[in-house]
């Protein structure tokens, strides 16, 4: 874990006695001044799957390496985000899309297929011997996505946390204070993206992406964004990133990448959107992202009301029976 940054700054200089008193009382401490909301925009159309983000994250945050192994599903040998893996590059292999895919889901749209067939018949696209198709006309594709904590505007993990360990920083990011967390595990089941996890081998606390809070404090961009060679991972003010995301989507649509879509920008996910958003090239489910996850804290009121209804019924019957 990187050095725990100080969360508070003292107002002005004080004598040692004043310092001690102010620390005891706590009234002279004030939160760091609010900064513009910062976040990521991960443009998967630019990702080349180099995993520099994973490595940079591990290195900067001093996280232990995974035991290398194959999942057997794709070239992804990380599998999922975990307590000690805060960036994870997905490798989605969509082979045989030309023929509508094996399951018929990932195929090219029929109008696109018709265009290709027409071009081939008119000789616009040279007919090639099998196996020598130019990459441009090869419709097989690898989708890559560098997954990360979404830093939700309404973060379920933060809402669930009973110790106040999970806070929103002055950069509006979601941060787990490692000295407060007692590893109760409620955030783990609250997160609808399976991001936050309890570090069972190390600290036994909940851990996840900090958006490199320590680097941000010094005005440096997070390690993954710094390392990304294609600018697939972009870091900046959330509003600017979202504007950029819409612009990029427009460009891709203009160029014929109709399947491009944004995730966490304008869809109001978890009733506030995500500070760490994505540009995807397929349905969110293909990337294991729920299209419209529920906000767990919304369940508290209805679940409580049903409990009260049941308790009232039983209480009334109990009173009736014992009064006889």
């Amino acid at each position: 874990m990187a050095v725990e940054p100080s969360r508070y700054t003292t107002n002005g200089q004080r004598g040692s006695l004043g310092n001690v008193v102010s620390r005891l009382v706590g009234s002279k401490m004030s939160p760091a001044p609010q900064q513009p909301a910062m976040g990521f925009f991960t443009d998967t159309s630019l990702c080349i799957g180099c995993k520099a983000c994973e490595v940079a994250c591990k290195q900067w945050n001093q996280l232990p390496a995974n035991e290398p192994g194959w999942t057997g599903a794709s070239y992804d040998n990380t599998g999922q985000l975990s307590a000690t893996t805060w960036r994870h590059v997905l490798f989605i292999e969509q082979i045989g899309r030309r023929d509508n895919g094996q399951d018929g889901r990932h195929g090219l749209r029929s109008d696109m297929q018709a265009h290709i067939a027409q071009a081939k018949s008119e000789g616009v696209i040279p007919l090639m011997p099998p196996g020598t198709a130019l990459p441009f006309f090869n419709t097989d594709r690898w989708l890559m996505q560098s997954d990360v904590c979404k830093h939700c505007a309404n973060a379920p993990c933060q809402e669930a946390c009973p110790t106040g360990a999970i806070i929103r920083t002055e950069f509006d990011t979601v941060y787990v204070q490692q000295d407060i967390c007692n590893g109760c595990g409620y955030c783990v089941v609250a997160c609808p993206f399976g991001v936050i996890a309890r570090d069972e081998q190390g600290t036994h606390t909940a851990r996840k992406c900090t958006l490199c809070y320590d680097r941000m404090k010094d005005g440096i961009e997070p390690a993954c964004a710094k390392a990304c060679p294609t600018d697939s991972i972009q870091f900046g003010e959330v509003e600017q990133l979202k504007a950029h995301a819409r612009e990029r989507l427009g460009i891709l649509h203009e160029r014929g990448v109709q399947e491009a879509r944004l995730y966490g920008v304008d869809d109001d996910i978890l009733e506030g959107g995500l500070n760490s958003s994505f540009l995807l090239l397929d349905e969110p489910e293909v990337y294991n992202l729920p299209e419209n996850p529920q906000r767990p804290s919304n369940n508290v009121v209805p679940a409580s009301l049903w409990t009260i209804v049941a308790a009232t019924i039983l209480g009334l019957f109990g009173i009736i029976f014992f009064r006889e």
């Binding site: 110790t163 007692n182 309890r198 606390t205």
Partner: peptide, 23 residues
């Protein structure tokens, strides 16, 4: 015993959070 860090169980009493059923 169920906590990841049992010695920190008193951290539960730092806050009173209506939104969190565990608190």
């Amino acid at each position: 015993k169920d906590l990841g860090r049992p010695e920190r169980f008193l951290h539960m009493l730092r806050i009173f959070k209506v939104k969190s059923p565990m608190s």
